[in-house]
């Protein structure tokens, strides 16, 4: 992960097992783009806005997609989403919510803040892979020209 400017997919996930499964799902779908995993909301925002430990990164290079867990240490997933979607430079980055629960209030809030998609992480791994495939194709391949 030497060149942070090449990161195309940012995964924000505090559970390393979930993060690994997400990476595996991407791999199974042949989505071989550069992926960076960060463990909390603060790190995620530092990366997006090129600050903190990511201050050397060029702010011009933005990830093609952000997979954001809802429940995160330090800064919560919804706050991260809100921050990203309230800045004109970053709000164009597609953000996909990954969550364990189908809690309606989370869903409503996410869409109010401008989330692009919403995936409930299924227990069944195969179903997760299916979901990643659909989202990934859409946002990474079909939506590429937004760059």
């Amino acid at each position: 992960m030497e060149n942070l400017n090449e990161v195309e997919i940012l995964i924000v996930e505090d559970n390393p097992l979930d993060a690994e499964m997400a990476l595996r799902a991407l791999k199974k779908n042949k989505l071989t783009n550069k992926v960076l995993v960060v463990g909390d909301g603060e790190e995620a925002l530092d990366f997006v806005f090129a600050r903190g430990k990511f201050d050397e990164r060029s702010r011009q290079s933005r990830p093609k997609i952000i997979l954001l867990d809802l429940k995160l240490p330090k800064i919560d997933g919804l706050d991260v989403l809100k921050e990203i979607k309230s800045h004109p430079e970053t709000k164009v980055i597609p953000v996909i919510m990954l969550t364990s629960s189908k809690e309606e209030s989370d869903l409503v809030k996410s869409y109010q803040l401008g989330v692009n998609s919403y995936i409930v992480k299924p227990v069944d791994f195969d179903k997760f892979v299916d979901a990643i495939r659909e989202i990934g194709f859409y946002w990474l391949l079909l939506n590429q020209q937004k760059r």
């Binding site: 559970n15 097992l17 979930d18 499964m21 595996r24 809802l70 429940k71 969550t99 364990s100 629960s101 189908k102 809690e103 992480k121 299924p122 227990v123 069944d124 791994f125 195969d126 997760f128």
Partner: peptide, 21 residues
């Protein structure tokens, strides 16, 4: 409820996912 739905599922996902791996 929220934490149950969120936290109890993560290990299940791991059990299931890693069995799959």
């Amino acid at each position: 409820t929220y934490s149950v739905s969120h936290d109890l599922r993560a290990p299940l996902r791991a059990i299931n996912g890693y069995s799959d791996f």
